[in-house]
């Protein structure tokens, strides 16, 4: 029982961070209708920014959230403005042009990181790195808990932004019906830029809080891109609430899978869920709640 609770707890903790990754992806999916296959790679860039700040300026990873998020916001603006939006105007046979473009962007980001930092594994330590909390018989390690708390806080701020501010409402309107939103005076070109940048900033935050937990290397982006879309499919395309449930479900499933089947199956659990959802619950968890 303790083993089960322990896996469950660490699953929920990592799931909170997965949710943060998934929300960015699902926002982009909702507004632009494309899968951002550079999502994990953007996270990788955020992690390297945090790493550089830590290694050269000795800045604590949690404080560098204030740098990595704005930096990735800018990267997101540039990508959407100069690489993705121009594609809307190009006549092409393939409908998935923008998705292909994000694949290209992901490859370029990974290779640039490899150029600068080589393929070596990097890691950071914080003051709390080796601290452990106890909750009854369950042990929780401190960086995970802090990362979870930050992820939840950012998610709450995002929801406040989406529900209460004008800009947030415009984003939701564009996601619901682009043409109607445009007719109501929403500048949809600007909204796509902001959404992509927001998604990039959120995933950068996830990367930053994950850095004290994971090793960092240029290829870390790929697996996280895949996780992000598993979450998106699981939660229902374009649903932010779904992404939270999707993230937590994936976190728990991975954690239990690793405990009961073995470490090497950890990655596979996500894909099995993905296939099961596609077969039995197309539309994802969103379908169950009707939100």
């Amino acid at each position: 029982m303790t083993v089960f609770l322990q896996s469950l707890a660490s699953g929920i903790l990592i799931g909170g961070i997965y949710a943060l990754i998934g929300i960015g992806m699902t926002l982009i999916m909702g507004v632009m209708g494309i899968i951002n296959l550079a999502h994990g790679q953007l996270m990788m860039v955020g992690m390297y920014i945090t790493y550089v700040l830590f290694a050269f300026l000795k800045i604590d990873p949690y404080i560098s959230l204030l740098v990595s998020m704005p930096a990735l916001f800018l990267v997101g603006v540039v990508i959407q403005r100069f690489l993705l939006n121009p594609l809307m105007k190009i006549e092409a046979i393939l409908p998935e042009n923008q998705v292909l473009m994000t694949v290209g962007i992901g490859m370029v980001l990974t290779e640039i990181a490899r150029f600068i930092f080589s393929s070596d594994y990097k890691s950071t330590t914080t003051a709390f790195s080796s601290q452990v909390f106890f909750l009854g018989t369950i042990s929780l390690n401190a960086p995970m808990v802090i990362a979870f708390v930050i992820a939840v806080a950012l998610t709450l701020i995002l929801f406040w932004f989406l529900l209460k501010t004008d800009l947030g409402r415009s984003i939701r309107a564009t996601a619901q019906d682009k043409e109607a939103a445009t007719l109501m005076g929403v500048n949809s070109g600007r909204i796509t830029i902001i959404t992509y940048a927001l998604g990039a900033a959120l995933v950068a935050a996830a990367g930053t809080v994950l850095l004290p937990i994971f090793y960092l290397f240029p290829d870390i982006g790929g697996p996280f891109t895949l996780k992000a879309f598993v979450i998106t499919i699981l939660g229902g395309l374009g649903s932010t609430v779904g992404a939270i449930f999707g993230g937590v479900t994936l976190g728990i499933a991975e954690s239990l899978g690793a405990t009961y089947f073995g470490m090497q199956y950890r990655e596979m659990v996500g894909f099995v869920i993905f296939l099961l959802v596609l077969i039995f619950l197309p539309g994802g968890l969103k379908r169950l709640t009707k939100i």
């Binding site: 690489l83 594609l87 006549e91 046979i93 393939l94 290209g104 490859m107 370029v108 990974t110 290779e111």
Partner: peptide
């Protein structure tokens, strides 16, 4: 010689932007 993956990525971006067909 280590940059061929980078060139791949740049090629994807270039082709989609300027030579979509």
């Amino acid at each position: 010689s280590q940059s061929h993956a980078l060139v791949f990525g740049l090629l994807v971006m270039f082709v989609i932007l300027y030579m979509a067909n």
